[in-house]
């Protein structure tokens, strides 16, 4: 069968595995977007920029404070998350009463400003960030050479994704959150501090973007443009998965990574548009997205 497709099975398995790795990035990023959208109804256009800031935070911690990868993995998302909290408190929270478009424009503007500032400071070629010693090297799987670091990325991303899904869909806190989205006034009446919960949710979503940035730093150049390259794809993933659906974001992220990997084998020139073709088809057939509900 593989011979029929004109591709050796080794190549195919290799590409599928790579697709899974990229898919886990898509999943992690679209998860943050979906959490924010699902709970706050804000379309967080600064997500790509926050992912970039996460990577730069890791670089700055290493360069200026001598903090290594593992601590950066913890500290950088916290810093980026705190930045998100400040953003929500000072600006975003004023826009909830207005049309969603305002939130989108605000976050979009913030993304442009962040990218511009980092480009001004660091240039467009980016900065190198080394792979941590413990994860250097790789395994020869027979059909491909799998770098240890990429394997770690898949594991870390799956753990974070499933953890988040569990926290929101299966715990008491998650139940409060979901209830607060449906009817904030009623939930507040039960004595739950809804504004704090919303701020925390935004901070958490942004921290997820920061975490993805740290995970990406050793693979890609730490580059001011790294977020804008990715954000459009991630938005498409969220649209296909069904907006605000946590499970949809995770499953679609991984699935589209695989699909993109296959495209890179059979028709590489189309690899940057295949996701948008899928988006168009899904929207025609199932306008709410694969896992979404019409509101």
């Amino acid at each position: 069968m593989f011979e029929l497709l004109g591709v050796a099975p080794q190549v195919l398995f290799g590409q599928l595995l790579l697709g899974l790795i990229n898919g886990s990035f898509y999943a992690l990023l679209s998860l943050g977007l979906a959490v924010i959208f699902g709970m706050l109804n804000v379309i967080n256009f600064a997500h790509g920029a926050q992912y970039m800031v996460g990577a730069f935070a890791a670089w700055m911690l290493m360069q200026w404070a001598g903090v290594g990868y593992w601590w950066a993995l913890l500290l950088a998302p916290v810093l980026v998350g705190l930045f998100g909290v400040a953003l929500e408190k000072t600006m975003l929270s004023r826009l909830y009463k207005l049309d969603h478009l305002y939130g989108l424009l605000l976050t979009f503007g913030i993304a442009l400003m962040l990218e511009g500032a980092f480009r001004h400071q660091f240039g467009s070629s980016g900065m190198p960030y080394p792979i941590p010693d413990a994860l250097k090297g790789g395994q020869n799987l027979g059909f491909m050479f799998l770098p240890n670091y990429r394997a770690w990325v898949v594991v870390a991303s799956l753990v974070v994704c499933s953890g988040t899904w569990y926290a929101i869909e299966r715990t008491q806190l998650g139940a409060y959150l979901r209830a607060a989205t449906e009817n904030p006034v009623l939930v507040q009446a039960f004595g739950i501090n809804v504004p704090v919960m919303i701020t925390a949710t935004y901070g958490f979503g942004v921290a997820l973007a920061g975490l993805a940035g740290v995970l990406a730093a050793p693979i890609y150049q730490v580059n001011p443009l790294m977020g804008s390259n990715l954000i459009i794809i991630v938005f498409a993933v969220v649209v296909i998965g069904g907006m605000g659906s946590i499970l949809g974001a995770i499953v679609t992220g991984l699935g589209l990574g695989l699909l993109e990997g296959l495209t890179k084998v059979f028709y590489p020139e189309a690899s940057n548009i295949v996701i948008f073709v899928v988006m168009a088809i899904v929207l025609l057939i199932k306008p709410a997205g694969l896992f979404g509900r019409e509101r």
């Binding site: 109804n41 379309i43 969603h100 989108l104 979009f108 498409a236 649209v239 907006m243 709410a288």
Partner: peptide, 9 residues
């Protein structure tokens, strides 16, 4: 809402 998100893309 979807239109907004698409406009965003």
């Amino acid at each position: 809402m979807r239109t907004i998100l698409l406009a965003g893309v």
